[in-house]
Simulated assay, not measured.
Amino acid sequence: MAIGLSTYAFFWRMSSRVPDPMGLEAMLDHTAESGATVFQICDYAPVEALSCAELEKLRQRAEDLSVRLELGTRGLETAHLTRYLALAQALDVRFIRTMFNSVTHQPTPDEARELLRIIVPQAEQQDVQFGLETYEQVKTRTLLEVVDAIDSPALGICLDPGNCVAALEHPCDVIDMTARRVVNLHIKDFAFARQNGWVGFTYSGSPLGTGLLDYDHLQNAVRPNERHINQVVEHWLPWQSTPEETCRQEAAWTTQSLNFLFARNPQAGLR
């Protein structure tokens, strides 16, 4: 089991809203400097445009830093996932997170199952795991039914219990339902706050350990250390008053998240 950072831990620092956005190599370097040993390049479209030489440079840089790369995308279309398996081969990646839906395609459960039946054998041959992420657009039970129907070591659940609240699924219920099929963890905390005037709530991120994520329950149910499941830090940090303050808060949340996880998972260790 390893602890890592996602590109979603750099969401604002890599965005066009800041004066000097971080690039992929800078995020990778920061991951290594933080003591994390996994960097998940998730929903980061520029990686798809890298040349063979650029992919090899990225793979070599990660190897030099002793950081394992993972990938993340959206959708189940065969051509798209075949492309990601090719990226995985070039980058020596063993895990790809994906979702049922992309911007252009929203398969039914039956369609999703048939699409996965096409691509999963290729993943098996390549020793790559796909993880379907829990999120509000698809009921957790539907994801599980598809994963159970395929029943392959190359397909499991990427668990992020906070994503499912918008579908009125309780995070602990999602943890319990998926635990046996989890192959990757997205770790972020979340909380509700009253809107000004006490009319409604905002559901947003919070520093890890301060919100509603029952991390102890997640750890006990999934057993990531025992089962060698990577834990990857993300954030739902709202934009702050200025780019500088937003970047400062994002960096502080990352540091707090890593300290929390290393304290709870001493087996992971620090570099």
Results as ranks from 00 to 15, higher is better:
E48M: 15
A251T: 13
R223C: 14
L213A: 03
A53W: 05
E56P: 01
C247N: 03
L55K: 11
V222F: 11
K188N: 05
V183S: 10
K139M: 09
L237N: 06
V222C: 14
Y135M: 11
I150E: 06
D92W: 11
T108N: 01
Q106D: 01
T242N: 10
M1I: 06
A112N: 02
W236S: 06
E244K: 15
Y203P: 09
E145R: 15
P161S: 05
D29K: 10
R97M: 13
D92N: 15
L76I: 03
M1K: 05
L258W: 01
T178G: 03
V147Y: 00
V93W: 03
V103C: 01
T98S: 08
N265P: 10
P46R: 09
L261W: 05
E77Q: 14
T104V: 11
A263C: 02
R181P: 07
A36E: 02
L143A: 00
T202N: 12
S206W: 01
S257R: 02
S102M: 05
F192E: 09
T255Q: 14
W239A: 12
R13V: 06
K188A: 10
R271Y: 08
R264T: 02
V18M: 07
P238R: 02
W236R: 00
R94W: 05
W239F: 10
W198G: 14
A179W: 09
N196V: 09
S6N: 11
A123K: 05
P121D: 12
F95D: 09
E136D: 12
A268H: 02
Q219P: 00
P109M: 07
A45W: 07
M99Q: 04
R68E: 12
Q195H: 02
R117V: 10
N225H: 10
R68K: 13
W198A: 12
P207C: 03
K57P: 00
A49P: 08
Y44V: 06
E133G: 01
D160A: 07
E25M: 14
R141G: 01
P224G: 09
L115D: 07
T104I: 09
A36M: 06
M14S: 14
I157E: 07
N184H: 14
F262C: 13
V147S: 00
F10K: 10
A167M: 11
L76A: 06
L50I: 10
F262K: 15
V38M: 07
Y8G: 04
V146P: 00
R248C: 07
F262L: 15
E111R: 04
N101L: 07
R97F: 12
P207E: 06
A32I: 08
G209N: 02
R181C: 09
L237A: 04
L28P: 08
E25V: 14
T82S: 14
S102W: 06
A90T: 12
A32N: 07
S257W: 01
R74Y: 12
S15F: 04
Y135K: 02
